[in-house]
Simulated assay, not measured.
Amino acid sequence: MNLRALYLFGAVAALFPAACAAQDRPVELAAEVTVDLVGQMAGACDRKLRALTNVDLTADLDLAALAGWDGATMHVYVLDNRGARPNDVIGTLQGVDNIEVPDAGLRLFEAWVEQGLGGGASLRAGLYDVNSEFYANDAAVMLIAPPFGIGSEIAATGPNGPSIFPSSALAARIHVPVGTDGAFVRAAVINARASTIGDAGGVDFSFRDGVLLMGEVGRSGARLRGAVGVWAYSRDPEDLFETTPDGMPLRKPSRGIYGVLEGDLVASESGTVTAFFRAGLSDRHATPFGGGFQAGALMAPVVASRPDSRVSLGLHHAWTNRHFRDQQRLAGVTAGNETVVELTVSDTLAPSLTVQPDVQWIHNPGGIQGASDAVVAIMRVIFSF
């Protein structure tokens, strides 16, 4: 954590009790510090422990109370990430830790205003995390492997990735409830180049790479819930594999479809067991992936006397596409798919302290057939304020 992040964290921690004093508070502040220790227990790489940190600072403002702007709220989210990059050594296609970033730094991750439109509908505009609403489900949130956040077949797209952790982009999102049973429709237009304050160049206002269009229909708030979504870039990106006769990259469409299904298998006063399945497909030109799926289950609580105890088991699998396999074959590598099984447990040991051990078994790391399977252990410690 650098000095600026420490100052911000201290300011939020100091103000937070005052913000929580009133029942109907116009400003809500929160801070969370996550520290991960990552080590490989089996596989081809070394056994060194590598540390990563993630600091989340959020503020939610009621603009009606603060400025007389009826039906409007504002959300600001500052993010700081430091530490090692364990996947540089482990070498998976999809990563092992969802707080690992390519470039350490302090960023303004989200800053949007939401306007209520009546009937539960709303419009958001500003710097926006697509994965906060699209291609997301609650039962997968506890799992640490990145594909449980958003499918790799879309996470690997865009000039700098789509507008997801750790870099966001300017966007506009509309959400419209349908009926009274939790059905909804949402759509978003997002700058194709994810770049925010803290990234090189800051926020991109040029939109020179076009936009990412996303749409999702689904149902929430029921025992069985889920969504189906589609996405496409307005401007065809450069093909990662195919070129023109003079060696210039071809431009091919980048688009895909996904589905999310989640349901409560057991729902009682003593605990809930929730299962989920997610899958996505994309074109074969802009990423190494043709698609993938994630499945898993969450039990909460594990022990009735410990209401914050949870255990989650997950499986994620990525299909590499033909172009990626051909490219790897030219390099003398037999490429295949990558499969990961993850088991994690967590519990709150003190009012502000959560401990979460995690283990992942990785088959064909890097999508390389015959590569030694890897076993990665993570100890996550979370301080919340």
Rank of each mutant, 00 (worst) to 15 (best):
G105Q: 08
A121N: 02
A171K: 08
G210M: 04
G201F: 06
D181N: 10
R186K: 15
A188D: 03
S168F: 03
V113K: 05
G118P: 09
G179N: 04
L170P: 14
A169N: 04
G161N: 07
D129Y: 10
I190L: 05
L143Y: 04
L143T: 03
E110G: 01
E153F: 15
A111I: 11
L127F: 00
S167R: 12
L170A: 04
G105K: 02
P166I: 00
A183F: 15
V185L: 13
D199Q: 09
V211P: 00
A192P: 01
A155T: 12
A145Q: 14
S168P: 03
S122A: 14
G158A: 04
D181F: 06
F207A: 07
D103Y: 11
A188S: 12
P102Q: 12
G182K: 08
G116P: 09
L143M: 10
A125G: 03
G158Y: 03
V96K: 07
G119W: 08
A169E: 02
F134I: 05
T157C: 07
G179E: 00
A194E: 07
A125Q: 11
A187M: 13
G210T: 10
A183S: 11
R208W: 13
S167P: 06
I174M: 09
S132H: 14
P159H: 01
N137D: 14
S163F: 00
A194Q: 04
M142C: 08
A136P: 06
A145M: 10
V185G: 12
A136S: 15
G119D: 08
S132I: 02
L106T: 11
T180S: 13
L117Q: 10
